[in-house]
């Protein structure tokens, strides 16, 4: 099977400090891969470098077999690499509907946009009920759903999600996990899920990478990682 995303030897520096280095990640086409790690490990930095919102100091990023290391963010999105960022970054004073349409801002296939909109409503019915509500007045959980839905509206080949569980109640987190699998299964969208919540990460993904202060310390199938000593120590208290 070919990989939709391949990150090779990625290094990112903020000024003189190294945030991540020698990072290698592969996301197989149609797969769900998770990247876990504690605060400041460099998870967001990795995703941001994939989208080109922070520059890669070293290394290569291949998307659908093509080198996109130097492509603009807009170009990456157009090719189908999309990120629902940490903190959501919704447009707070715009309606739910306009937020969704902005997700599709680079597309011109009206029917496809309509179909994806319907899919988002099936996935998150609350969005349909709140179509005219301003995004900023929605609850945290609803905003997270909107952020994911806005990502779907770009018709991604790979949807990257940066800590979708952040600030949500346990019941809502379980729901988000189900939705992520549903997106993957119904639309065949590959997913790269960044999480601190290992319960969500392991529930949704089949393969896992583990970051620790800018370095990749473990990778493997979710089963392997679950039993990995390093990870156990970090996440399950021994």
């Amino acid at each position: 099977m070919s990989n939709i995303l391949e990150v090779r030897g990625l290094k990112v520096m903020y000024g003189k400090s190294i945030a991540i280095h020698d990072i290698n990640i592969s996301v197989p086409e149609g797969g769900i891969v998770t990247l876990i790690g504690s605060n400041g490990a460099g998870k967001s930095t990795t995703l941001n470098a994939c989208l080109g919102t922070v520059p890669a100091t070293e290394g290569k990023i291949l998307f659908a077999g093509e080198d996109i290391t130097h492509a603009s963010t807009a170009e990456r999105v157009r090719r189908g690499l999309v990120l629902a960022p940490e903190g959501r970054h919704l447009f707070p004073y715009l309606s739910v509907q306009k937020n969704l349409l902005l997700g599709a801002t680079q597309r011109s296939d009206k029917e496809g946009i309509q179909r994806d909109m319907e899919f988002c409503f099936e996935l998150f019915p609350i969005l349909k009920d709140r179509l005219k509500q301003k995004a900023g007045t929605m609850s945290g959980g609803q905003q997270q759903m909107l952020a994911i839905a806005r990502g779907i509206m770009a018709n991604p080949k790979l949807l990257c999600l940066d800590e979708p569980s952040l600030g949500l109640a346990p019941a809502v987190i379980d729901d988000i996990g189900n939705k992520i699998r549903e997106i993957n299964q119904s639309k065949g969208t590959s997913i790269l899920l960044v999480e601190q919540n290992v319960h969500l990460a392991f529930g949704a993904a089949s393969y896992c990478y583990t970051l620790q202060v800018g370095e990749m310390v473990a990778e493997g199938s979710v089963e392997e990682i679950r039993n990995n000593d390093v990870v156990k120590k970090a996440y399950f208290g021994g």
Binding site: T53, A74, R78, V82, H89, F91, P92, L102, T105
Partner: peptide, 23 residues
């Protein structure tokens, strides 16, 4: 127009706008 909506998006969240592929 689309340009207008993109302007609005940029003024409300610049990074969010860039991540939708707005130039």
């Amino acid at each position: 127009t689309k340009l207008g909506m993109q302007m609005e998006a940029i003024s409300q969240d610049r990074l969010g706008a860039a991540l939708q592929g707005i130039q």
